[in-house]
Design a protein around this nucleic acid. Structure first.
Lengths: 202, 202
DNA sequence: ACCTGAACACCGTTCAAGT
DNA sequence: ACCTGAACACCGTTCAAGT
């Protein structure tokens, strides 16, 4: 149950893996230091030998979640920059969806300035292949990232509600979306289109 | 200190106003039911006569924060739809910035499906003035809303860091932005441009 | 209509001490 | 190198009872 069958003590990696398991099984609100410690059969204080605090642990989880994303086929340097941007965005969405509450975990550590800048950098590089300057690429990338995180957070929240059966049929807010993948693609295309237009105007 | 100088007991409105004061003075993490009760000179349990739980209280705060936004001059039905969208987005940003952690409060209640759909509806109506169908307007509005909330959350997070003096000079991540208002306008224009392009293609 | 008092079941974090 | 034991200073929420 503790992910370590030999009687040995835990590594930092054991802690992270147990945390990811709790996150995926129970969700972010139930990922507490005390529950994590119990899953590892140690006292809560033992976790503070591996991580200075919970935020740092969450940042590590966020990094692993986004690092697990596939490299899009559109990363092919010969591919059109629009497809590169679409591919990066889709890969990011998939990675966030791979863990329960993944978008929230990544959002929170991003807001705190923790976590690596890799995520926004990759998006910015895809945009830059359209010939945009650094600042434009960067601004577009952060705007797109905000959309992706907001969209997937919302998507995952609905998953939870639906599984809890909280919503009576037809009790859904108009803010909800029947086809999340299509709504996502539409949003991404809005960005791509906006960039395209801004270029054709210079 | 309790906002009620007569010896009378508190109304639901008193509770909300005290909560908004704590939010603005101390921030969302310090807005606890116990602290709120102390500010009103009542026991924590007293709050549960006015609100069933903390989430409902936060939803009320979120509604008040967004309801306080000015109606943009561009709401003039004769104005260009692009300016209407820009105006709504800017008014929303201003409203969120008016309270400490305003964007986070609104985000959290939006994600939970609480709070009124007014916010996304207003944006959707502005978009619809460009002649887009209902679904397109709605999708564009939610995408734009996600950008606005993500952007302002990040902006407010940085305000907090700066005021705490946590960041050594030049220690800022490339995800940060020197001119938030310009970056915001750029992001909004990306949306507007994308919509414009999508229309010119039909 | 609005609140008290007391309790329940939790949190994250620190720190001296142990092996 | 990794963990225990005990504590500190908190949380949100419930519920019977009071005025």
């Amino acid at each position: 149950m503790a992910g370590n069958e030999t009687g040995r003590r835990h590594s930092r990696d054991d802690v992270v893996e147990a945390a990811l398991r709790i996150l995926d099984d129970l969700g972010l609100p139930d990922l507490t230091m005390r529950r994590l410690a119990a899953a590892l059969d140690v006292q809560p204080s033992a976790l503070y030998w591996h991580f200075p605090n919970k935020q740092t642990l969450l940042a590590e989880l966020a990094d692993r979640i986004v690092a697990a994303r596939r490299v899009p086929a559109a990363a092919d340097p010969a591919a059109d920059w629009r497809d590169a941007v679409r591919g990066e965005a889709a890969a990011l969405r998939d990675a966030l969806l791979a863990y329960r509450d993944g978008a929230e975990v990544v959002s929170s550590t991003l807001a705190l300035g923790l976590g690596s800048p890799e995520t926004v950098d990759r998006l910015a590089r895809a945009v830059a292949r359209g010939g945009f300057d650094l600042e434009t690429s960067h601004r577009a990338a952060t705007a797109l990232l905000h959309f992706v995180l907001g969209h997937v957070s919302h998507e995952q929240q609905r998953l939870q509600y639906d599984s809890l059966g909280v919503l009576a049929d037809g009790d859904r807010s108009p803010f909800d979306e029947d086809d999340p993948a299509a709504a996502f693609a539409f949003g991404v295309d809005l960005f791509v289109g906006g960039l395209e237009l801004s270029r054709s105007r210079t």
